[in-house]
Simulated assay, not measured.
Amino acid sequence: MTSSSLCRLLGAGLLALALSPAPASAERIANKVAVFSGLDKITGRTTTFDVKVDETVQFGTLRVTPRACYTRSQSEAPKTDSFVEVDEITLDRQIRRIFSGWMFADSPGLNAVEHPVYDVWLKDCKSESSDPASAG
Rank of each mutant, 00 (worst) to 15 (best):
Val51Ala: 09
Thr56Val: 05
Thr90Val: 02
Arg63Tyr: 11
Ser127Val: 04
Ala68His: 12
Ile29Asp: 11
Ala18Val: 06
Pro23Arg: 07
Leu122Pro: 04
Thr46Tyr: 06
Asp124Asn: 15
Leu15Asp: 10
Val57Trp: 07
Thr61Phe: 10
Pro78His: 00
Ala18His: 09
Glu85His: 03
Glu85Phe: 00
Asp81His: 15
Tyr70Leu: 12
Val113Ala: 03
Ala68Glu: 15
Val33Asn: 11
Thr90Ser: 09
Asn31Tyr: 09
Ser4Pro: 00
Ile29Val: 15
Ile29Thr: 15
Glu88Met: 07
Pro21His: 09
Cys7Trp: 04
Ile29Trp: 10
Phe36Gly: 10
Ser25Glu: 15
Pro66Tyr: 04
Ala24Gly: 06
Glu76His: 10
Arg28Trp: 14
Cys69Gly: 09
Val64Thr: 02
Ile29Pro: 04
Arg67Pro: 01
Asp87Met: 03
Ile42Thr: 15
Glu76Asp: 15
Phe36Leu: 10
Gly101Val: 11
Pro116Val: 08
Asp131Arg: 08
Met103His: 02
Asp92Pro: 00
Leu62His: 07
Cys125Asp: 10
Ser3Ile: 05
Val120Phe: 02
Leu19Glu: 06
Ala133Tyr: 09
Thr2Met: 01
Asp124Pro: 05
Ala34Trp: 01
Asn31Lys: 14
Ser3Tyr: 04
Ile95Glu: 09
Ile42Cys: 08
Arg93Ile: 01
Ser107Trp: 00
Ile98Pro: 04
Ile98Ser: 09
Trp102Pro: 03
Leu91Cys: 04
Phe104Trp: 06
Asp87Pro: 00
Trp121Glu: 08
Leu91Asp: 15
Ser107Phe: 01
Ile98Val: 14
Ser20Arg: 02
Ala26Asn: 14
Phe59Gly: 13
Glu55Arg: 08
Tyr70Arg: 12
Ala133Pro: 00
Phe99Tyr: 14
Lys123Ser: 10
Leu17Gly: 14
Ala22Pro: 01
Thr48Ile: 05
Gly136Ala: 02
Leu19Asp: 10
Lys41Asp: 05
Ile98Ala: 08
Ser5Trp: 01
Glu114Trp: 02
Phe59Tyr: 15
Arg93Cys: 00
Ser73Pro: 01
Glu88Arg: 13
Arg72His: 14
Trp121Ser: 10
Pro66Met: 04
Arg72Gly: 04
Ser134Cys: 06
Ala26Gln: 14
Ile29Phe: 12
Ala22Tyr: 03
Thr43His: 07
Asp119Arg: 04
Gly101Glu: 14
His115Tyr: 02
Tyr118Phe: 15
Ser25His: 09
Phe99Val: 11
Gly38Thr: 02
Leu15Tyr: 10
Ile98Met: 07
Ser5Gln: 06
Lys126Asn: 05
Tyr118His: 12
Val113Gln: 05
Thr2Lys: 09
Ala34Phe: 02
Glu85Val: 11
Ala68Asp: 15
Asp106Val: 00
Ser4Phe: 02
Gly109Asp: 03
Ser129Val: 02
Phe104Gly: 02
Ser5Cys: 01
Val117Gln: 14
Ser25Asn: 10
Asp124Tyr: 13
Glu85Leu: 05
Pro21Cys: 10
Thr90Trp: 04
Gly38Pro: 07
Ile95Ser: 04
Ser37Ile: 00
His115Met: 06
Leu62Pro: 04
Leu19Phe: 11
